[in-house]
Computed example of a mutant assay.
Amino acid sequence: MTGVREAALARRSCSKVTDAAPDPAELLDLVTAAGRVADHSSLRPWRLIEMRGEDRAILGRALNKADGKKGVSSKAMRAPLVIAIVAAYRKSKVPRWEQEAVASGVAHLL
């Protein structure tokens, strides 16, 4: 438990983005760990969309289009890797809010 406590206390948000990003194998390892969040009925009600390279430009155009603008939003291009976490609700006794909380937990842990 000491390692978990120390990791939580050492955690800091960093607003400066660099060109460093996990490679696909490293990302898979991180997603495997993040997928261990509490998940009632093991529904895994989340999906990840990994965007690198030109995929980020597609997202950037969609963001600008949603705002009634043309071109590519710079927000999508700031980092070499953008991950969208999507709540994928399942028909279940588990309420939607709880499934959304699981997806949020995966996003936070990742």
Rank of each mutant, 00 (worst) to 15 (best):
G35N: 02
R5I: 14
K65W: 10
S41A: 03
E54S: 02
I58Q: 03
M51Y: 00
R11E: 05
L28D: 03
A57I: 02
V82L: 15
H108G: 13
A87C: 11
W46N: 00
V102T: 15
A8T: 12
V31T: 05
A57F: 03
T2E: 12
L9R: 13
L9D: 11
A34F: 08
A20C: 04
I83A: 03
D67H: 14
Q99C: 12
E6M: 12
V82N: 12
R52L: 07
E26R: 09
L110P: 12
H40A: 00
K91L: 07
G60E: 01
L9Q: 14
K93A: 13
A10M: 01
A8E: 09
L43K: 05
G71D: 09
I58Y: 04
L81P: 05
A101S: 12
D55E: 04
L109N: 14
L48G: 03
A107D: 06
A21P: 08
P24Q: 07
G53F: 01
A38G: 08
G71V: 05
V37N: 00
T2G: 08
S41F: 00
A7G: 10
S41Y: 00
P22R: 01
L28R: 03
V37H: 00
I85S: 06
L9C: 09
S74Q: 15
S73Q: 15
S42A: 11
R90A: 15
R44P: 01
V102L: 09
S74V: 15
S15H: 03
L59I: 05
S15T: 02
E54G: 01
R78P: 12
L30Q: 00
K16N: 02
S104V: 13
W46V: 03
R44V: 05
E98R: 13
R44L: 00
E6K: 13
Y89M: 05
R90F: 12
T2L: 14
V72E: 13
I49N: 00
A62P: 04
E98V: 13
